[in-house]
Nucleic acid binder design. Structure first.
Lengths: 316, 316
DNA sequence: AATACTTACGTAACTACTTACGGTAATTCC
DNA sequence: GGAATTACCGTAAGTAGTTACGTAAGTATT
């Protein structure tokens, strides 16, 4: 199919599907040729059973052949109806269904052997016609996917793209509303707004900037989607606070950009330590802080009720 | 999945299926991430349409993306409902349905572009982690399959195996019944038994062997499954005749074994030419004769009504 | 012009899996 | 020792394709 070369690797799923269909279709005819009473779809289950003398559970078969347990359950039902297997509840554990090849199923093993040998040989030849080692490449692909699936790989590209389209700018008067609303949004969602919140959110100029802090805003395609503040504690210690990203802009890696920017500001201001307080309930936030380099510490209790975790980042 | 290394290449179809499922599943999430109103399964159709300005027919899309026309028909229906395409009967040919991207569909193209770029990049990276070139290997595999599909490759192994289990023996008195029945079986199926048939089938000793001919029988697992005779025409010319293989033993390449054996006999007898008469209706037989090296000739008319083709093989 | 064949298409039913869900048995946690 | 959680399994419904089949339109043949 030249289509796949034209579309490129995006259609890799379709390509596998198509190949699978081709092979499945041929398999049906091959099973017919050898006239063994085994449906092609039963083969993986049959194979596993033929190597397990004492019987084996549904989910263990599923695990071995990489299907869902539901699939195995259905396959076994079919094989049972065909008289190839017997299944009964385990004596030790009443949940498990122990499946064994019946005498009839056992009798199939030598008959399958010829077919197995011939098909294997034919496929080997097919694969040998290629200059690349497909079998190995498939193994490598599966290993790579196991290590990190495609979704998370694409997510990374996505975030990078979104981040490139996001500008981090310094706070100015026109951001005051956005700054307040972004923060109220998440506080109200998870907690109750406290008095100390209102104070700093309503007038960040006096409560944060004037005492020597900083505020940055994230703008995506012209609209403000996130913010983060740095509050001066003393000459060497600053607190990261008021980190907020709008609902719609989550998952774009904007928190990461804000964090990076605010740490940069802290460095510029001569900080040696950035401190923060949060709540373990906010799992994604904690994960972000950890990724930014923050480590958990225990310090004096926070004035905010909602905080149950404190973290710090040492700057050098 | 170590299962596939354990089972070997026989499970290649399952392996493709599994990979396809993995990618399809990830694709669903990726499409969600980019929030384009396009279902993953629509992508191939969408892709083709985005490259065809003037509209394109259902079956042409199917041909390009390698689906069945029915599949495309269903996909287009879905896309139509989603407002992405419009379709109408062609003015020139009332059978064809011309499909074009709607304005809404066109608007999707730039939105898809980012996703396309990111996914392609991610998959490329995934593939690059392997030491073997999977993409190329898949192309090679498809090309090999196009040239000769798996079924016919396996069939070859199957025939070789069956042939190895088949013995070719010389005719002796105890084969007389089998010789007659095997031949009557196919003559009655396709034609009417003629007087000259009965003569030679009832007493092959006098009509074939005594005048200097030969008969061989094919035995598979102890039972006679085929026969072939050589009739002396003169010192240099022999006729291959009475080739018959039992219904149940067809497709095992037994005709080939019989033909080879009888040609060997002809050579031993000092023949320079083997001649035969047949009917073009019997396509598999003609194909076999051709494979054995026979070429079509025109000679004097045959005494058998059913014969409409004559062939010859020169021996050196 | 009537007839037979071919082509394009859509619908229905099937395939080989999946996820979702619910029931039951075993295990863990106070 | 009871409650909550976890594990195992089967059934039902969904998915992305397929084949089978019927219909309508076009083409070739007599």
């Amino acid at each position: 199919m030249e289509f796949f070369d034209r579309v490129g690797t995006m259609a890799i799923g379709s390509r596998f599907r198509r190949l699978s269909d081709i092979f499945t279709d041929d398999a049906r005819h091959i099973y017919q040729l050898y006239d063994v009473g085994l449906e092609p779809k039963w083969f993986p289950v049959f194979y596993v059973l033929s190597h397990e003398d004492g019987g084996i559970s549904t989910s263990e078969i599923a695990r071995q052949i990489g299907h869902s347990h539901a699939s195995v359950s259905q396959l076994v039902k079919g094989m049972d109806r065909a008289g190839l297997v017997t299944s009964e509840r385990s004596a030790e554990d009443g949940r498990v269904n122990v499946i064994v090849l019946s005498a009839e199923g056992q009798a199939l093993i030598p008959k399958i052997r010829d077919q197995y040998a011939d098909v294997t040989e034919a496929v080997q030849e097919l694969l040998a016609e290629s200059h690349s080692d497909l079998w190995r490449a498939l193994g490598d692909l599966e290993a790579s996917l196991e290590e990190r699936d495609l979704l998370s790989r694409v997510k990374q590209k996505y975030q990078r793209r979104q981040q490139a389209e996001t500008d981090i700018v310094d706070y100015s008067a026109e951001h005051s509303e956005a700054f307040r609303d972004l923060n109220l949004e998440w506080i109200e969602r998870y907690f109750e707004v406290e008095d100390s919140d209102r104070e700093s959110l309503d007038d960040p100029q006096h409560t944060i900037l004037d005492p020597g802090g900083a505020i940055v805003m994230a703008c995506h395609h012209g609209t403000v989607v996130g913010t983060c503040a740095l509050i001066k504690m003393d000459d060497e210690r600053y607190e990261l606070a008021k980190m907020a990203v709008s609902e719609a802009a989550r998952g774009k890696g904007i928190g990461w950009l804000l964090g990076r920017a605010i740490i940069e500001r802290a460095r510029d201001l001569g900080a040696t330590t950035v401190y923060l307080e949060s709540n373990t309930m906010l799992t994604p936030a904690i994960a972000l802080y950890r990724k930014l380099g923050f480590k958990r510490v225990t310090g004096p209790p926070s004035p905010y009720h909602r905080c149950n975790i404190q973290m710090e980042l040492e700057l050098h």
